[in-house]
């Protein structure tokens, strides 16, 4: 069971990483629109060529949050 002395600290590091990722995503507006995203998957990206390219970096609405 001595392995736990290694594994548990490792798990704490993992928790810290998860917490960091979560804080980052809140800060960058990932949770700002919980309704729209679910419906967005219904759109075809190929409807207009320009949009598929740009939609990937679409969430740019974080100016006022940061």
């Amino acid at each position: 069971m001595d392995i736990l002395f290694l594994l548990i600290p490792l798990s704490i590091i993992l928790v810290l990483i998860i917490a960091g990722a979560f804080l980052w995503s809140v800060k960058h507006g990932q949770f700002d629109d919980l309704e729209g995203q679910g419906q967005r998957i219904l759109f075809d990206d190929d409807a207009i060529d320009k949009s598929s390219k740009n939609n990937e970096n679409a969430p740019t609405n974080d100016q006022e949050n940061t």
Binding site: E35, G36, A47
Partner: peptide, 22 residues
């Protein structure tokens, strides 16, 4: 959302258009 974003995207000079539904 779809209509607004795609309609605006096809305008000359528009880089990104993003609608927040909430």
């Amino acid at each position: 959302i779809w209509l607004i974003e795609n309609w605006l995207m096809q305008l000359p000079g528009v880089d990104t258009a993003y609608v927040n539904l909430s």
